[in-house]
Design a binder for these strands. Structure first.
Lengths: 136, 136
DNA sequence: GTGTGTACTTTCTTTTGGTAAGTATGGGCG
DNA sequence: CGCCCATACTTACCAAAAGAAAGTACACAC
């Protein structure tokens, strides 16, 4: 991946056709992929697809997430431009989280994956049971 | 969940419409989701979508993965029924890995996500740069 | 001055991940 | 015969990440 500075500000042909390659360890797209597919990142994107939520709401709907990890995950997704953080200057604090345009794009794809797994969970679990029975 | 006592082994209506809920911490679908979206799981599925590969080939194409993690990841995906392991009884060992039918289904969805990120990597990185400049 | 509510942050412990070395097997080579 | 090679794993050890729980900040109510 070439992210070097250009002498002109016009996008060149190679710029336009440049894309990442997650199979290459140096490519920054792998970092973004990790933010998106991280344990809690997936669930945050999935949850925010249903609309704006505040911190405490996310914490309640995503069962099992700690405040530390939720905070960390939201920051990473915000830095990548997927999540918009809106802090209202009141006390006690009130902060809203929503998806950006690009956030909705990734989240839609995450949702497709999550939905497929949720729908097919039973056959998958059966396969897993058979596997563990066969090979201990 | 099921209030009526059943004397037969026929699947009930509720059985048929049962699906997972990844937002619930107890739901096993969350475990499957983690296998699929794990750091190396995503890349293995993505790589295997291009066809059958042996262990050493995967290790080469997925830059940066250790033998331990590749082995571990392949086992998890095999247990979930996404990956088929075929060991030829020769020496030195020769083992092939390919996707099962359900493996192709998840992998296709993973691919959609990966492709979107690879294509849009540049705007994302720009957003990230702006973010780090603003908030250090 | 004590308690409440929200969104974090910090500290400490546990779990997970990475690195490197070891294991099993038989065939080729000197 | 002794030694090395190739391949697909395991194992042992240490570093990094995640989880649990407590602390912080602020204004207002009592």
């Amino acid at each position: 991946m070439n992210n070097s500075v250009k002498s002109t500000s016009e996008p060149t042909l190679t710029d336009k056709f440049q894309r990442g390659n997650v199979l290459a360890s140096g490519c920054p797209s792998r970092g973004v992929l990790q933010d998106v597919t991280s344990r809690w990142g997936v669930l945050v994107l999935f949850a925010l697809l249903r609309g704006t939520h505040r911190f405490s709401e996310l914490r309640k709907s995503i069962t099992g997430v700690s405040e530390k990890m939720l905070s960390q995950t939201l920051h990473a997704l915000e830095a990548d431009g997927f999540v918009l953080r809106t802090a209202h200057p009141v006390i006690p604090p009130h902060v809203d989280y929503s998806l950006t345009e690009s956030g909705r794009e990734v989240a839609k794809r995450v949702e497709e994956l999550v939905n497929w797994i949720e729908v097919n969970i039973n056959p998958i679990l059966n396969a897993r049971d058979k596997y563990t029975q066969r090979y201990r």
